[in-house]
Design a protein around this nucleic acid. Structure first.
Length: 215
DNA sequence: ACCCAGGTGGCCC
DNA sequence: GGGCCACATGGG
């Protein structure tokens, strides 16, 4: 199944999806992208709620935060020792290098921003691309674990490397922010709908009864 | 009592 | 470059 057809099939099944990443600001997207690493979004919401309640949900506050206090706030998202540090690191970077101006940070060539993000400890390709797409509105497609499972199962392929799967999409569909946002959102929606009890269980990958096969 | 989650980095070979 | 492993909470 080609990417374009997959996109069409998913939209037909779930309807248009243009408002997927829930966040009130570009910075909140960045925070969510880091907190959601290998973590259920439910837990991320709890951590973000803590940050909001503590009025810490902005670059300046997190950049100047006490690490111990920050850890306490992001605790529900798991891996809180590393995540607290990563949140503070990227916030300090944005403050020191970009004067806390997130518009200036994004107002450059995509590859340049991406390289800088990847240079930060704790920002890998998926986190960088999520930030670029949903916070920066750049035409970049994040490829997550769901994407690997869905594509590999549907096509009986065996993509394993991030760049490989991403390039497969890049070669076979039009590059625009709206499409990439919707496609990624739909893939996650599809993966979560695959099983009532678990977002994507092993059965969802192999069992013929699994709803995620119905495309 | 298991298994899983919208990854990443470090270490080893 | 690939194969493990730690990181950690909360829900099914």
């Amino acid at each position: 199944m080609q990417p374009t057809y997959l996109h069409v099939a998913l939209r037909k099944k779930y309807g248009p999806n243009h408002t997927w990443w829930p966040a009130r600001s570009r910075f909140e997207v960045i925070v969510g992208a880091i907190l959601t690493q290998n973590t259920n979004w439910r837990n991320v919401e709890a951590a973000i709620a803590n940050l909001r309640k503590a009025e810490m949900l902005n670059i300046e506050k997190i950049a100047g935060a006490d690490l111990t206090a920050l850890k306490k706030l992001v605790r529900p998202a798991g891996f809180y020792n590393q995540k607290a540090r990563r949140l503070r690191d990227i916030s300090r970077y944005l403050m020191e290098r970009w004067n806390g101006n997130i518009d200036k940070f994004f107002n450059r060539a995509v590859w340049q921003i991406r390289e800088e993000l990847l240079d930060l400890k704790g920002i890998g390709p998926e986190t960088a691309d999520s930030i670029l797409l949903y916070a920066g509105n750049k035409a970049v497609l994040p490829v997550d674990a769901y994407t690997f499972r869905i594509v590999n199962r549907l096509n009986k392929t065996d993509f394993k490397k991030y760049d490989e799967l991403q390039n497969y999409f890049y070669k076979n569909m039009s590059h625009n922010v709206r499409s990439f946002k919707e496609l990624h959102g739909l893939l996650v929606e599809h993966a979560k709908a695959a099983c009532k009890t678990k977002p994507v269980c092993k059965q969802c990958i192999v069992a013929s009864s699994c709803k995620s096969r119905q495309l």
